[in-house]
Structures are given as structure tokens and as C-alpha cells.
Amino acid sequence: MTSVLLVDDQALLRMGFRLVLESEPDLRVVGEASDGAVALEQVAALAPDVVLMDVRMPGVDGIEATRRIAAEHPASKVLVLTTFDVDEYAFAALRSGASGFLVKSARPEELVEAVRVVASGSSVVAPRVVRRMLDLFAGQFPVPGQAERDDGLHARLRSLTPRELDVLRGIAEGLSNGEIAERLVVSTTTVKSHVGNVLAKLGLRDRVQAVIAAYEFGLVRAGGDGPA
């Protein structure tokens, strides 16, 4: 059973999400919040598997709430709700630790699948979409504590082998495991192993975070077509 916390300042939207999610036998809504401050309290009390998070809310917005949840309650994965598929607020939430985003116009079955994917530890956003976001918004949204995080990541970056760096660049370009394997002339299984090593060594949760980290490290250029 996957537990879900709904965070949105519109009660009707929360009701709609609850009806969709609770129609599934493996999903259970354990709480609701109308702003980020209440969401933080609910996450601490309920430890939901997934937090369905709006970003535009009064008071503590979804970006700050996501950052706090990722730092303080990493077992609770955040799935951000947004209006557009390339949205500066959604991108800021991804930088803050969200596992993906979903447009509010998504079909019910897409919402259900997204919650299940995030709960499983994967991300709900294609690396190519993250790349488009980086091209548009990189550098616009400083994250509190980013300098300290970057220092730690830079130190861990030096632990990557040359082949792992090649794989990280491929991820950042939005390539699939199969496409990276073709470029490097290795098997898809080998690439999958390298991806796991990269995430583990850098302390990153998923490919989305790897894309963002690669851009922030300068391994690939924002707005460019390949490695820096």
C-alpha cells in the first residue's frame, strides 16, 4: 500500500485527486494540506511515501516545502503539480529535490501511474524535458544550502571513473541507457550498472538529479548540444 499526502491550496482539486487515488486498491491518501507549512507538519507526522505537491501556494510555497522534505524526510518522495510541462516553478522544485512533476491536466490514469513510479524510487520526468528546463531557467533559482551541497558533490565527482563520467554526460544530454550503450559501444546492462554507480557515488536519488548536477558542474552546457 502506497501512502500519499495531498498538498494544494484548492480544496476541490484535493478532493478530485483523492477520489482518483483512492479508487486504486494499492493507493491510500493519508492526509491533506493547503500550504507548505502544514505539509511539513503532515510529512513529519505521517511519513507518506509520496507527497503530491502544488508549487504556487501562499505562505510556505511548494518549492521551499520540497527542499525541506528532501533534506529532512528523504523517504517521502515529492511529485510536483504544475500547469505547464516546461515551468520555471517546476524546475525550481526539481532542483530542490522533487522526484518529478505532473501537469494538472493529466488524465487520472497518468496521475495514478506517476504516483506509483515515484513511490518505486524512479523519477517522473524525462531527462530531455529537464534539459529544456535547464536551457531556459538554469541559474535563476538559487537553492538555500546549494554551495555546501555543491562542495560535497564536487568532492564525490572526483571519485567517478572516466567511463562513469561519460555515462553521466550521456544522462545529462537526455540519452536513454540504450543510446548511451550505442555511443560507448558497450552493453545496456553495463550502462545500467554505471548509472547505478554514478548515482550512488554522487549521493543522487535518480536521473533527474543527475542531469541537474551535470549541468551545475559544467559537464554539459546549458543551451548547448553536447559536452562542455
Rank of each mutant, 00 (worst) to 15 (best):
D54I: 05
A45E: 10
A47H: 14
A98E: 01
A222L: 03
L219W: 09
V30S: 04
Y89D: 03
E113N: 10
E216S: 03
S120W: 03
P74Y: 02
A200V: 00
Y215P: 00
G178Y: 01
A114W: 07
V208F: 03
P144Y: 03
A106F: 05
E148S: 14
V86I: 15
L102E: 04
A44M: 02
P162M: 06
A210G: 11
P127S: 05
L165D: 04
V124C: 04
Q146L: 11
G145W: 14
R68H: 06
G121D: 10
D150C: 00
F84M: 07
A45R: 15
F217M: 14
G170F: 09
R18H: 13
V115W: 05
L168V: 13
G223V: 07
L102K: 04
S23K: 14
S105Y: 02
L204C: 07
L219Y: 05
L202S: 09
E179W: 03
V167L: 01
G139T: 11
G224K: 04
D61W: 14
T66Q: 12
G100C: 10
V43E: 08
R158Y: 00
T2W: 01
F101H: 13
A155I: 04
V29K: 08
T161H: 10
P108S: 11
R116A: 11
I69N: 06
S99R: 15
Q10R: 14
V220Y: 03
V186F: 00
R116G: 14
G152I: 13
D225L: 09
A138W: 01
A71E: 13
L168M: 12
A228F: 02
V29D: 02
E22Q: 14
G196A: 11
R107L: 14
A147Q: 15
A92F: 01
P227G: 02
H154P: 00
I171Y: 12
F91N: 01
A93S: 08
F84K: 09
L13E: 03
A228Q: 06
L40E: 03
E110F: 03
L199P: 13
D85G: 06
F17A: 11
